[in-house]
């Protein structure tokens, strides 16, 4: 396997606070990697550095062999780094079909087209409908986004990201706040993502982390504490200390 994403000595300071410090980390192509850490460990800042919303104080980011440290967020999305949000960032005034079609059109550079009506862009609409159907949202396609259940809106959040055709998908707590009976849909969707998409999962729910991840990175105090297989991480004494008694055991089932 080859490396898809690499960060070298990546740091970010906010005034006197070092949110991310000297993180050197490589993500394999097709990875199922989780990024965990207690609150305030710098996970969100690390994601913002990867997507380009926040510029680094030091260090380098390489994606598919290209130095992208100075690239704009939009350019990174076009190269295939796409994220979802911990708090839904959807278009409440649109239907899911419109939202996903919009992502498809932006990806193909067709969203600047002004004269042909949207309804005549069949390829984009068909692709959007297919994507929604593959996540089990076929029946919600034309329902106003604000009227679908929270769990399904979480799925839509992932669907919009997938429409950008990511090479690397950054999932920020996809199951956050999802009620028990809708949790499985999210977990299955995440588990069934094709291997052509590398996944970096940021999650507090250890159940989901240990079911999904093949490797886990632990961020504490802005630094990369441990990186390894779930077993290695679960048995690491430093990780246990960092979580101060929070159980990190793999679920019994």
């Amino acid at each position: 396997m080859s490396v898809i994403l690499e960060t070298n000595g990546l740091s970010r300071r906010f005034g006197g606070l070092r949110a991310v410090g000297n993180v050197t980390f490589a993500l394999q192509d097709g990875a199922r990697q989780a990024l965990i850490g207690p609150n305030g460990a710098g996970k969100t800042t690390y994601i913002n550095l990867l997507t380009g919303v926040v510029p680094p104080s030091e260090g380098r980011i390489t994606f598919l062999g290209e130095d992208i440290t100075r690239l704009s967020p939009e350019a990174r999305v076009r190269r295939g780094i796409v994220r979802t949000f911990q708090i839904n960032q959807l278009f409440d005034e649109m239907t899911p079909l419109e939202a996903v079609a919009l992502a498809v059109l932006e990806r193909d550079g067709k969203a600047r087209a002004m004269w042909r009506p949207l309804a005549s862009h069949h390829e984009a609409l068909d692709e959007a409908a297919g994507l929604l159907a593959s996540l089990g949202l076929a029946d919600a396609m034309e329902v106003p986004t604000a009227e679908i259940s929270y769990g399904r809106r979480r799925l839509l959040e992932i669907c919009v990201a997938l429409a950008c055709r990511p090479r690397l998908l950054l999932l920020d707590e996809p199951a956050a706040g999802v009620p028990e009976h809708e949790r499985n849909d999210i977990m299955n969707t995440v588990a069934n993502l094709p291997r052509t998409v590398s996944v970096l999962l940021i999650e507090h729910d250890m159940d989901l982390v240990f079911r999904f991840a093949e490797r886990i990175a632990v961020l504490v105090g802005g630094e990369l504490l441990v990186e390894g297989t779930p077993d290695e991480v679960a048995n690491d004494i430093r990780v246990k200390e960092a979580y101060l008694g929070e159980s990190l055991d793999a679920p019994a089932a």
């Binding site: 997507t51 919303v53 967020p73 939009e74 350019a75 990174r76 999305v77 076009r78 796409v82 994220r83 949000f85 960032q89 959807l90 278009f91 409440d92 005034e93 649109m94 419109e98 939202a99 079609a101 919009l102 992502a103 059109l105 932006e106 990806r107 067709k110 969203a111 600047r112 087209a113 002004m114 004269w115 042909r116 009506p117 949207l118 309804a119 862009h121 984009a124 919009v160 990201a161 429409a163 950008c164």
Partner: peptide, 28 residues
């Protein structure tokens, strides 16, 4: 009306509705 019913019109609604998400899907 042609403009607002086009993909560009949809993109404008996207920018108005959620600029953060628009940037996250790589929209200019």
């Amino acid at each position: 009306r042609a403009i607002v019913n086009s993909p560009f019109g949809l993109a404008l609604r996207g920018v108005k509705g959620n600029p953060l998400r628009m940037r996250a899907i790589g929209a200019p």
